[in-house]
Design a protein around this nucleic acid. Structure first.
Lengths: 189, 189
DNA sequence: ACCTGAACACCGTTCAAGT
DNA sequence: ACCTGAACACCGTTCAAGT
């Protein structure tokens, strides 16, 4: 368990293993620090810098892994685009509140920019296009929906003296999301 | 400028002066740390603990001071409650994006709980009551509006590679806020 | 290229002591 | 009661060195 490794001896790290450790650590303890990730991997803190530029890049990597859990069903021919958007954002909200420690990072990055985030954004834009909303209007609408979703997730993860129950916050989120999507779709009619 | 004070000598601190220093520091450097506040006051870092329980309490104090800047005009007899709510939340949004470093703290606290925050909430509930929305429905609507406003402020303060211009984010905020308020008011008709 | 050891410049907070 | 000095247990990151 101690350091059975001298200088120069490989520990078998990789970028993937570092991200794995960080993701696990987040799920278990809720906090991610360079030193804790290193400890979990049994290496010196600075060993991580061979596989990750800095903490920001590490957090970005974890963010995109978490976003992979969002359920983004592809466009259905006969379905309602409003319903599809509602489902996608609700799934995103669910994933976020299961990882409250990452929500501030999502906010600071305006919603992440990894591959999974881009995919989710593209799916949303498809739904908006079906609803007749394209170009700048679509990007604005998407930004509003993302802000709302992440904002509510941030609210949920926050500790409070008299905390609002999760179920109630979920209902609030759903109601507001309905107002937003209705407003977005009706703005084009 | 150095410590011309020995142990036992008073520095003339007070809770107000500590909060003043923290507020100024935030406005200038954007970051608030115990040690930086102490340095600005010319005292040892731990001297602050005679006037403030911990960093959380200090940040809470700063938060409420900033919220005092929000313009909350009282209820007008003939005016539209939707417009009044729109103006109040827009003013709040403006104050928040002028203090981007505090926005994460606002999120973590679900929108602050000081005297000013309570006053703003009460004014909003008055407007909602005029619109015919009371009780749980009013509290839900208020929570949705607060989340949206703080969430958008968080988005605004975030650094990004290709940053969305402030003016554009303001327009997005305004549009989404309109959708929300319209949805809230129409939900009761 | 990958890792260690040591160090730097930070944090918030506590404890004992002085007046 | 209010403040200092010293210390503790943390951070992220860098630099030189070893294989």
């Amino acid at each position: 368990m101690r350091s059975s490794r001298g200088p120069g001896q490989r520990a078998g790290l990789s970028r993937d293993r570092v991200l794995d450790a960080a993701t696990d650590l987040l799920a278990e303890s809720g906090a991610v620090t360079m030193r804790a990730v290193a400890q979990r991997l049994g290496v010196a803190p600075n060993a991580l810098y061979s596989h990750v530029a800095d903490k920001t890049e590490l957090v970005d990597g974890v963010l995109d892994r978490v976003l992979a859990q969002v359920d983004a069903p592809p466009l259905e021919p006969g379905g309602s685009p409003g319903d599809a958007m509602h489902r996608l954002m609700t799934s995103t909200h669910g994933v976020l509140i299961r990882h409250p420690q990452l929500v501030p990072a999502f906010l600071a990055r305006q919603g992440a920019r990894g591959a999974n985030a881009r995919h989710l954004g593209a799916v949303m834009l498809e739904h908006l296009a079906v609803a007749g909303i394209t170009g700048d209007a679509a990007r604005e609408a998407l930004r509003v929906l993302i802000v709302y979703t992440i904002g509510f997730a941030a609210f949920d993860g926050a500790p409070d003296e008299r905390p609002v129950p999760h179920s109630e916050l979920r209902a609030d989120f759903d109601r507001g999301l309905h107002w937003l999507i209705t407003g977005i779709i009706e703005s084009v009619r």
